[in-house]
Amino acid sequence: MTAVCGGLNVWMSFFKVYNHRFTDTKIYRSWLFKLLNYEIRQKTKQLALESEYEVDSSKVIFNYSNRNLSEDETKLLSLGLDFALPCKSPSFADNFLAFERLCHTVNNCQILDNSESAKLKVFEKIASLANDTFYDFKRHRHWLPSFSKAKYNALKSLKEDPNIIITRPDKGKGVVILERNEYVTKVNILLSDLT
């Protein structure tokens, strides 16, 4: 049985069953997957990864180049220049430095007794956790479910186009697409002006 919490349309993510043997049945698992998919859809809407409203791209994207944008490219650019994909692989330095900082913090705290064996056990667990998070990183676990391969390819084609520059407007938020040659000449004119 599902329950709505406090009238806020928030689903409980578990079923209370009288007999725990029912948790191994197919019907129980199918309802759990339905609830999980519902929660994923709700969270992606909250994170604006899947929006119910469309942004008017003509108010956000200013295309002054000769490139005609596809529908996927237009939707991606309407997300803004602050949109970013999850990382493909974690940074070695960032990962291990964070865990090293944690070890120094734990070492300086008075929560541990002063025995070396207790500190070594804690440090071994932290080292194990650091190795697990870095070496067992699975890219597919961190991929956005609403981000398709076609959208990724559209983003890649925008990035690799040598004839355009994608930048921010001088005022406000948005996306400006300019021809690279025109942009470079205008920047050179601005830089050569001595006044």
Rank of each mutant, 00 (worst) to 15 (best):
T25I: 12
D170S: 11
F22I: 02
E179Q: 15
L77C: 01
T195Q: 14
F96G: 02
S70V: 10
S57F: 00
E52K: 05
W31E: 04
S128V: 13
E52Q: 00
Q42V: 03
R21L: 03
V176Q: 05
H140G: 09
D56F: 00
L158Q: 05
L144N: 07
E73A: 03
S30V: 09
N114L: 15
R21V: 00
A118E: 15
A118P: 02
I126A: 11
E182M: 13
A127I: 15
V106F: 09
P162G: 12
S51A: 04
A48Q: 10
F96V: 06
L79K: 08
K43A: 02
M12I: 10
L36F: 08
K156A: 01
E73M: 04
E50H: 07
L112W: 14
S192I: 05
T105S: 08
S65C: 10
T2E: 13
Y53P: 00
R180L: 05
E50D: 09
N95D: 02
Q46A: 03
I177S: 09
D82K: 11
L35I: 14
R29G: 10
V175S: 09
L129N: 10
G174M: 13
S51K: 03
F123Q: 12
S115L: 10
F147R: 01
T195A: 14
L35N: 09
F134I: 05
D82C: 02
N108E: 10
F92A: 05
N188P: 00
V187W: 14
S65F: 08
R168E: 08
N108L: 07
L178N: 13
C87Q: 09
R21M: 01
N95H: 03
L155A: 08
E39R: 08
N107D: 11
G7I: 03
N131S: 15
F134L: 05
K16V: 02
V187M: 13
L190K: 14
L8Q: 06
R41K: 10
L69D: 02
S157E: 05
V55S: 06
D113A: 15
S30C: 12
T2I: 13
I166G: 03
E39N: 11
F33A: 06
A84Q: 03
Y53E: 13
D136F: 13
K75L: 00
T133F: 07
D136M: 13
K75T: 07
C109D: 12
F62E: 11
E73G: 03
T167L: 11
K59W: 09
I27T: 11
N9P: 01
S65T: 10
E54P: 00
H104S: 08
L190I: 06
K119G: 05
L32E: 09
L32S: 04
R101L: 03
F134C: 04
K43S: 07
